[in-house]
């Protein structure tokens, strides 16, 4: 049986690396006493499948993890599991949704996800400056940036990855500078928010980056790998939201 968990990475824990987060989950799963499947070999590891990596320092409302289990869980256990995970995960990492997914045949999370929505707060100019930068980028038919890939510098056209770019206005109340909402394609490879900011112009500096959602495209629209529940999530630790 394969379990899919949706979780947050908000506040101070955003400085934890992807690798460290995997270890945190390993311990959480052990503490929840789940019948996890282990890889075979000299040093067996739990069979985890993470979605797209999140850069150190970036936050998220929509991270995903698939865990393979050796036994099926009953409904009652499943229903309690999200809250149970949150209790053993660090502040800022909360499990917001959980479901059983098909364990084989389907695409892995990394292959299936086609885009992410980001909230990107930047410094470096006024709202008008930002509007100009956004317009220039959206108006261009191609935007080449140099980036590192497997140790080589390559020149990539990133324009096709930018699906949507929206200016949220100067949210002076949050002191978060200019805030963009961006939908960025993730196939065949992803465009990092930092690279998008670079493409907007040299004056822009990243201030706060939050992944709001990940999407899987279908013929008739798009869908999240696992949607948030409709009602409030009682075990969500609100103190992290302030950061």
């Amino acid at each position: 049986m394969r379990l899919r968990a949706r979780f947050t990475k908000l506040g101070k824990v955003r400085f934890v690396s992807h690798r460290d987060l995997a270890r945190i989950w390993e311990r959480a799963v052990r503490r929840a006493d789940l019948p996890v499947a282990y890889s075979s070999g000299f040093s067996p590891r739990p069979r985890f499948h993470f979605g797209l990596a999140l850069s150190v320092g970036h936050e998220s409302w929509a991270e995903y993890l698939d865990v393979d289990l050796t036994e099926d869980l009953d409904e009652v256990t499943l229903a309690a599991l999200s809250a149970q995970f949150s209790a053993v995960l660090p502040n800022g990492v909360d499990c917001t949704a959980l479901a059983v997914v098909a364990s084989s045949g389907g695409l892995s999370l990394q292959e299936a996800v086609t885009s992410s929505t980001w909230s990107i707060a930047m410094d470096g100019g006024s709202l008008l400056d930002a509007a100009a930068s956004v317009e220039a980028l959206l108006g261009a038919s191609s935007v080449f940036v140099t980036r590192e890939r497997k140790g080589k510098t390559v020149n990539d056209d990133i324009r096709p990855y930018v699906r949507n770019l929206l200016l949220e206005g100067d949210r002076a109340d949050c002191e978060h500078g200019v805030v963009l909402r961006a939908e960025i394609g993730t196939q065949p490879r992803t465009l990092r928010p930092a690279e998008l900011i670079g493409a907007l112009g040299p004056m822009w500096r990243e201030r706060r980056v939050v992944r709001l959602a990940q999407w899987i495209d279908h013929e008739d629209g798009r869908q999240e790998p696992l949607a948030l529940p409709a009602g409030p999530i009682p075990w969500l630790r609100t103190d992290v939201c302030a950061t």
Binding site: K12, V13, F15, V16, S17, D20, V56, G57, V88, P90, N91, G92, E206
Partner: peptide
Amino acid sequence: LLARVERPARYIGCED
């Protein structure tokens, strides 16, 4: 400042 340094998780606390 943490955005600019190596292994920033050293400085956040939050341990169990």
